[in-house]
Structure formats: structure tokens, C-alpha cells
């Protein structure tokens, strides 16, 4: 039981860590990595859930969720990296302008 608790706390800590990175870093790659750490935390927690033994053995449902989640996470990371590269190719930097400073630029399909 204490093992489950320890792993759950680790997952919580990792989630907070990833979120902290996403919120405080300005480099987009760092923020994407932060999101990856958050995802790993959720997957860790799900795997912990699946080890709670039932009479039939380990619970497969969280494992299935982790598998699907990993696939989605990888696709989104790839997508995000392409987006960041695209942004960098256009603006020369892999950071976002501050939300208030985007000002009255071009909008719409004009």
C-alpha cells in the first residue's frame, strides 16, 4: 500500500514540476518538455492504479489508457515541435510574444 502512495505522490510532484516549467519558461521547447513531464506523471499515476491487485490480477483498463495516452502524447509532441520550428523559421525565435504585446497586428484572411 505504501508503494502505491509513494508512486502517487511522485506522480503528483512530477505533474506540479511539469506545470511549473510550462508556466515559467519562455522557451517553447522547454514548455513542450514541461507538458511531456506532466503527461509522464499522469501515465505513472495510471500505471500505479493498474497495479492495485484484484482477484483477477492487474487491472488492464488503466494500462490501455496509458497506451492510448502515450500515442496521443507522442503525436501532440511531434505536432508541437513542427509548430515551434515553423514559428522559428518565421520569426527567428522559439518564444511567444507576451500576450498583451501582440497588439493590433494583422488579423483575418487579409
Amino acid at each position: 500500500m505504501s508503494g502505491i502512495l509513494a508512486f502517487s505522490l511522485t506522480a503528483g510532484l512530477l505533474f506540479a514540476l511539469g506545470l511549473y516549467g510550462m508556466l515559467t519558461r519562455t522557451g517553447l521547447i522547454h514548455r513542450l518538455l514541461g507538458a511531456n513531464i506532466m503527461a509522464a506523471a499522469v501515465f505513472l499515476f495510471l500505471v500505479v492504479l493498474s497495479t492495485r491487485a484484484t482477484e483477477a490480477g492487474a487491472d488492464p483498463v488503466p494500462e490501455v489508457m496509458v497506451l492510448t495516452g502515450i500515442v496521443i502524447s507522442i503525436s501532440l509532441t511531434a505536432f508541437g515541435l513542427v509548430l515551434i520550428r515553423y514559428l522559428r523559421a518565421m520569426t527567428g525565435q522559439a518564444t511567444l510574444p507576451r500576450s498583451g504585446r501582440e497588439g493590433d497586428g494583422h488579423s483575418g484572411d487579409d
Binding site: A35, M90, L96, G105
Partner: peptide
Amino acid sequence: EAVSAATRYFLFALAGSLFYLL
């Protein structure tokens, strides 16, 4: 403009779905 707006949207959506999944 479009790519930076989309990247911001992407980061919010990514964090949002991880909160949801947790």
C-alpha cells in the same frame, strides 16, 4: 501572427487535456 496564435492555442489545449486526463 497566425503561427504564434496557434502555438499559444496549442499550449493551452495541451495543458488542458493533461489536467483533464489526471
